[in-house]
């Protein structure tokens, strides 16, 4: 159990913060609906309501970056299994997410900096008018903090996507070369074919590493099931884009 805590502290803390946020928001609702004084209600909303949303933001950032950090570790392991040297300098997963988490925490700190004075102002007066104004500023702070946290998390995700593109570039090139050398008169589906597998929710170019070990079958571009999305690894979205362009030109 202590080892699990050591390795998965971010998952545990993240889900715990989301759970605490749920409890705080529920108890705030109970307090607000049980109070007859508007100034009291505003104070509860500023502390428990908006504070609960800050906790939710912190928990979400921790859970999402924990997932991305694990994905980075898997990419490190996968790179070890490749028969050629690493494509670039290797970064530790903890270092990758640390910066994103610090920026996200600073963003949410901004929200708290707006929130605390607003709560002090609201709870210090029985007049609801200045309280409503202070609450508006607290909401503005929360929006700014949420945006900063979201952008910081997005930054981590973009680094992972760019590493995956670099790592799987040889497959993508092989897929492109393979498609270029395919004889147009070959039997079966045309060279516009993409590959799909029953286990997958995306369609792929021939040679995509995501299909390794799976029984994939070729389908023509026009027959791609609508529910399937293009694969990011082999950039099958290029096929989807071409298809859309063709459709719009044809009317």
């Amino acid at each position: 159990m202590p080892k699990r805590l050591q390795t998965q502290w971010d998952w545990i803390l993240g889900y715990a913060l989301i759970g605490i946020a749920a409890v705080v928001i529920t108890s705030t609702w109970v307090s607000v609906s049980g109070s007859r004084f508007i100034s009291d209600q505003l104070a509860y909303i500023a502390s428990g309501g908006l504070g609960g949303l800050v906790l939710l933001g912190l928990g979400s950032v921790l859970v999402i970056t924990a997932g991305l950090s694990d994905e980075w570790r898997k990419l490190n392991r996968l790179e070890d299994a490749l028969p050629f040297p690493p494509t670039g300098p290797r970064t530790d997963a903890a270092v990758l997410v640390r910066r994103g988490r610090i920026v996200a925490a600073l963003g949410l700190l901004v929200a708290v900096v707006f929130l605390v004075p607003a709560w002090v102002r609201i709870s210090g007066t029985a007049d609801p008018k200045p309280g409503l104004g202070a609450l508006t500023w607290a909401v503005v702070g929360l929006v700014i903090g949420g945006l900063v946290a979201a952008l910081a998390t997005l930054g981590v995700q973009r680094r992972i996507q760019s590493r995956k593109r670099r790592l799987f570039a040889p497959w993508a090139l092989a897929a492109t070369d393979g498609a270029a050398t395919t004889a147009p008169a070959a039997a079966g589906p045309s060279d516009d074919a993409v590959l799909i597998a029953p286990e997958l929710t995306r369609f792929h170019r021939p040679g995509c590493p995501a299909l390794s070990g799976l029984a994939a079958r070729p389908v023509d571009r026009g027959d791609i099931p609508a529910a399937l999305e293009p694969c990011d690894l082999c950039e099958a979205d290029a096929i989807a884009r071409e298809e859309r362009t063709w459709t719009s030109v044809a009317g």
Binding site: D70, K74, L78, A81, P170, A210, S212, G213
Partner: peptide, 29 residues
Amino acid sequence: HTADVHDEWRKLDRIERALRAGEPVPMPS
């Protein structure tokens, strides 16, 4: 988002298994 990340894990695990099983790998230039 977590569900999407889990899908990516499964995909990467499958690629790693295939690599360790000796599937041919295209070499970068």
